[in-house]
Amino acid sequence: MLHDSQPPVSDDADDPRPASDSADGPASFLASYLARIGLGGAPAPTLEGLAALQAAHIAAIPFESFDALTGEGVDIGAEAVAAKLIGRRRGGYCFEQNSLFLRALLALGFDAEGLIGRVRWMLPGDAPATPRTHMTVRVRLGGRPWLADVGFGSAVPPQPLALDRPGAAQPTRHETYRITPQPGGYRVAAEIAGEWRTLYDLEEAAAPAIDYEVGNWYTSQHPDSHFRHQLIAARTTAVARHGLRDNRLTIRRADGRTEQRYLSADGIEAALRDIFLLTPEPGWRRAIERAATAEIAG
């Protein structure tokens, strides 16, 4: 087991941090978004274009929930999300990530809509229903529905998943996924360490905006939300998944190698900068120091 005496190093040859563009106004949104994720041009509304956007987004914009952890609250209005994730070069969680992604897809001419679901990750099969706190995107291409998700942390699907292949294994550059129909929606699972683990249950019907507002309130404000108590960050590239949970940094490489290291407060800040492409803010330090002393089970 590695410790933070070894400075964390990004696996990417290139750091996808282009110069920031203003996200003010609809005319500049798409150009700013594409620059933020490191794409020089607008992909066509095809499966290949969708896959390119999804891979670039999760590599460039990290999953993080500092605003919930520090009590700042999370505004999921379109302009607030763009100002934060594009203008301020922050990351965010599912309601921010996938709403930004959906906005970009629509601007590019994709037939896309948001879905909402219940997270089942790390829960036993007989656990009671959870709140609807996960947003994803459904994209229709040539009459076929695809799931595109850029906001599920260290288990985020790295490419689009077909929604019309019930129960079929769908390999990706990282894990293999499967989507199983169930009454009123879908169950999404990933094969991890030889075991199928449910990520979330999705509702088939497109969700109204109020459902995202309610889910976001719960996720960012409710005392039972783990985002209020744990420092969480994640970033997925073509070669590795990087996950930070309090003081534990885990790197799961696409070739199957896994390593962990436990970080001091300064080590956490270094990882946020070097791996998760975030500039630590002064208001984060207290949460970082708490995270550095955490004891993590499992």
Rank of each mutant, 00 (worst) to 15 (best):
L2P: 10
H3C: 14
Q6P: 09
P8M: 03
V9R: 13
V9N: 07
V9C: 10
S10F: 12
D12T: 12
A13N: 01
D15S: 10
A19V: 14
D21S: 14
A23W: 01
D24Y: 15
P26S: 11
L30F: 04
Y33P: 12
R36M: 09
I37M: 05
L39F: 13
T46C: 03
A52N: 09
A52W: 05
L53G: 10
A55F: 09
A56F: 00
I61P: 08
P62Q: 06
L69C: 06
L69T: 05
G73R: 05
G73E: 06
A80T: 04
V81W: 00
R88A: 05
R89T: 03
R89N: 00
C94I: 06
F95V: 00
N98F: 03
L100C: 05
L102A: 13
L105W: 08
L105D: 09
G109A: 07
F110H: 01
L115G: 15
I116F: 07
G117E: 05
R118N: 07
W121Y: 13
G125S: 09
D126G: 11
D126P: 08
A127P: 09
P128N: 12
P131L: 00
T133H: 01
H134V: 04
H134N: 08
G142I: 08
G142M: 10
P145M: 13
P145N: 14
W146K: 00
A148H: 01
V150Q: 05
F152Q: 06
A155W: 13
V156Q: 02
V156D: 00
P158V: 06
A162Q: 03
A162E: 02
D164A: 11
D164H: 05
Q170Y: 09
Q170H: 03
H174D: 00
H174T: 01
R178D: 04
Q182W: 11
R187W: 08
A189F: 03
A190Y: 02
E195P: 08
R197M: 08
Y200M: 01
E204V: 06
A205C: 09
D211L: 15
D211H: 12
Y212L: 01
E213Q: 15
G215R: 00
N216Y: 07
W217H: 05
T219Q: 12
T219E: 04
Q221H: 15
S225H: 08
R228A: 03
T236F: 11
T237P: 15
V239F: 10
H242M: 07
R245D: 11
N247V: 01
N247L: 03
N247M: 07
N247Y: 03
R253S: 08
G256D: 09
S264T: 13
D266P: 06
D266R: 15
G267C: 09
A270M: 08
L272T: 04
I275D: 02
P282Q: 04
G283M: 07
G283H: 14
R290M: 11
A294E: 12
I296L: 11
I296A: 06
I296P: 10
G298E: 12
